[in-house]
Amino acid sequence: MSAADLLPRNATDLERGLADVLSRQPAVPLGIQRDPYQAPAEMLPWLAAHHGVRLWFDDWTEARKRDIIAHHAGVHPGYPGERLGEMVGTRLGLERYLDYVDASILHALAYPAPFVIGDHSVGSRRVNQGAFTADYLVSVTLTEPAQSFAVGASAVGDAALAPPSSEPVNRALAAARAAKSAATVVGCYFDKRIALTSGDAPSTADAPLTGQFKDRLELSA
């Protein structure tokens, strides 16, 4: 007997149809449907929306999709009890979100920043640094396109001048937006290299050539 059989005789066809559908046993048990690591792959987008996942890319691996859902649900085995959605607006939350797009924080300056010799500061606050803002130097990995231009190498066609894809940068920005609360302002710097100066030369004999660079490891004042 289905729920439709219990309806009064004057029940409409719509009511009988709904009762019949709602009384059926689901093909996949509800407990499995809600488990990020057991749910069928086609249900993952629904499960992500159910748990309020803020960062999602369709071309992610299935394992990564399951992990971020589990992280929002508080059942990620690597972060027991940690709910990613509750960490929005924190530095740790940003670190977690960036990790899902293969990016990381190299350095951060947050208000109120402490006085540092050489920085233009007044008291404990850096000059021109907005109240309650945080600046993050974020590292992403760019991949040179096939047949990209290289000094000394021959190249033909437009592919020779193609720059690295900006997709890793765009995804890191998406992660930063997902990690920030409505009341938070975040400035992200995606420039890991800075020009060498004379002060960077280890010795006169080993002075760097003009145009050489070094890795940027921290934000400047």
Rank of each mutant, 00 (worst) to 15 (best):
E42H: 12
H71D: 07
Y136K: 02
L94G: 02
D99A: 15
A110M: 06
A73N: 02
H51T: 00
V138Y: 01
E42K: 07
L92D: 05
A131M: 12
H107G: 03
A41C: 00
P45Q: 08
G81D: 09
S148C: 15
T133Y: 01
D67I: 00
P80Q: 07
Y100A: 03
V138H: 02
K65V: 03
W56S: 06
V101I: 07
G81W: 01
G152N: 09
S104K: 09
V101C: 07
Y79E: 11
A150H: 12
L84G: 04
L98R: 01
A49S: 14
Q147W: 05
A160E: 06
Y79M: 10
S121T: 15
A63D: 14
A160D: 08
A160V: 06
T143P: 00
A113P: 13
P112R: 09
I117C: 00
H120T: 13
S104C: 09
H76C: 08
R96A: 13
V122Q: 11
F132D: 15
Q147T: 05
D99M: 11
A108H: 10
I69E: 02
A162R: 13
G81A: 08
D99E: 14
V88R: 08
A63M: 09
W56G: 07
S154A: 14
Q38D: 10
V101D: 02
V53T: 08
I68M: 06
L55D: 03
A108D: 10
I105L: 11
M43T: 10
A110K: 10
L84S: 04
L137F: 08
Q38A: 15
L109P: 00
Y111S: 15
V122D: 12
D58L: 03
T61F: 01
H51A: 10
V156N: 08
T61K: 09
R96E: 06
R66P: 07
G52R: 02
T90I: 06
Y136R: 03
L109E: 12
R125Q: 15
V151K: 05
T61M: 08
H107M: 03
Q38Y: 00
W60V: 03
P112K: 05
H76L: 15
W60Q: 04
D135P: 00
R54L: 14
D99T: 05
N128P: 00
F57R: 11
I69C: 07
R125C: 05
A70K: 00
G152Y: 06
R96V: 05
V140I: 15
V151W: 05
S148V: 09
H72A: 01
G81F: 05
W56I: 05
I105M: 06
F57C: 02
M43L: 15
G118H: 11
A48S: 12
S154E: 10
A70I: 02
Y100I: 00
I117H: 09
A153S: 14
A131L: 14
I69H: 02
Q38F: 01
I68A: 03
Q129N: 02
A155H: 11
M43G: 01
Y79I: 00
H107N: 15
A70Y: 01
L161E: 06
L92W: 03
D119T: 07
V53F: 04
P114N: 10
A155R: 08
D58E: 15
W46H: 12
F57E: 13
G93V: 07
V101G: 03
P40V: 07
E82F: 13
A146W: 00
L109R: 14
H107T: 01
P114V: 11
L98P: 04
